[in-house]
């Protein structure tokens, strides 16, 4: 049974509120007393996911599920989808506009950085439908 389940909407191209969901998630995890290292890795992956939703999607959400053994973070959007996931995962590849780069994002590090920080990373995408990213962070130390 989950300890906590919550969903946070993320708005397309809204740079004023970008990062607020991640900040809120970080506060929740700290309050729950989650290990600082896990909070740090999850915060980075979560912020990357949120920025991607803001920059690339038509809008979406982040959902947080805290379980006794792990934390599941899901980023889900309503499009436009990624045509070539392997290419999108390679560091440095980005389709972000110059305007987004002026904001300090779009270096093409996001997906790879999410995968690096999560203990398990899964991505599914369908062009015209949307993208789903599931990240799992273990709470129990592996033996």
């Amino acid at each position: 049974m989950s300890i906590l389940k919550e969903e946070f909407p993320v708005v397309k191209m809204d740079f004023v509120t970008a990062g607020e969901a991640s900040a809120q998630i970080k506060r929740i995890l700290k309050k729950l007393g989650v290990d600082a290292g896990v909070v740090r890795r999850l915060s980075i992956a979560c912020y990357e996911a949120e920025i991607n939703l803001v920059i690339h999607s038509e809008g979406g959400s982040l959902s947080l599920e805290v379980n006794p053994e792990d934390i599941v973070l899901i980023s889900k959007d309503v499009g436009p989808g990624i045509p070539d996931i392997e290419l999108a995962m390679s560091e440095g590849y980005s389709t972000a506009s110059d305007d987004v780069r002026m904001m300090g994002f779009g270096a093409g590090m996001g997906l790879a950085n999410m995968a690096r920080n999560a203990d398990k990373f899964r991505i599914e995408s369908k062009v015209g439908e949307g993208t789903l990213i599931e990240m799992i962070f273990n709470l129990k130390q592996e033996a």
């Binding site: 740079f15 004023v16 970008a18 990062g19 991640s22 900040a23 970080k26 740090r40 915060s43 980075i44 979560c46 912020y47 990357e48 560091e91 904001m103 300090g104 994002f105 270096a107 590090m109 996001g110 790879a112 950085n113 690096r116």
Partner: peptide
């Protein structure tokens, strides 16, 4: 975000609020 380390100082010329959000994360 790809080069995090503890006790790090950030040097930047970017002046928007996302700099602080990144620091917070």
């Amino acid at each position: 975000l790809a080069f995090p380390k503890e006790h790090m100082v950030l040097l930047t010329g970017l002046v928007n609020a996302q700099v602080m959000r990144t620091c917070d994360m």
